[in-house]
Amino acid sequence: MAEPTLETVREFADSFFYGSRSNLDMKFLRDLSPTEVGDFFEGLLQHLATTLDDGDAGRLVDHVIEWQRHAYTAHLDGKAAFAYDDVPRAAMSKPLSNARVALITSSGHFVDGADPQPLGVVDMTQEEAERRVGEFLREAPTLSDIPVDTPPSHLRVRHGGYPVTAAKSDHNVNLPLDALQALQREGMIGEVHHTARSFVGATSQLRLREGVAPEWAEILRAEQVDAVLLVPV
């Protein structure tokens, strides 16, 4: 056993944010005050104690979701780096049932054999993406084309900013190809655009806003897309 280390609540909470206890589902702990960190764990353990008797883990799930929401929304205090007063808005040019609908997600998916090689690295691991997330935040994002008929076994996902475990087991949690294709069969939409796109949302916001996003919009316009479903992670 190593010598016990005296650790403050602040240090403990921060260690879940890319630190010694890195856990992207729990990285929100960094955004809580020390008192709130105490409240989170006290509530979690109370729910866990109740779960010992009835086995209903749903309350644990709800607790985590509620504190994620609280952590990211309660301390904004006008700190928003990007806030806009206007709302750019285009209207549908045809009924949805005749429309070509494209999908773009910031999930970090790509097709096997077409790795965008972020930061110039071949076959970057998820662990390296998490470790180097600060470098991602300074770079412009790359848009990966994903033909919508790609077999799920050919999909890859890597993203240093969020827990990818769920997306690895089912891409539809943030790349909802199955649902879009079902709605095409049903007739709610005219067609799913042949190419979905994904990028790593942990990226330079200024490079994205000033250069990349308008270029992507032009690509979609050239491809005569009628509407776009966007999925941030």
Binding site: A90, A217, A227
Partner: peptide
């Protein structure tokens, strides 16, 4: 950006 290019989004 996509809305500004004339394509509706959600």
């Amino acid at each position: 950006a996509i809305e500004s290019a004339g394509i509706p989004t959600v």
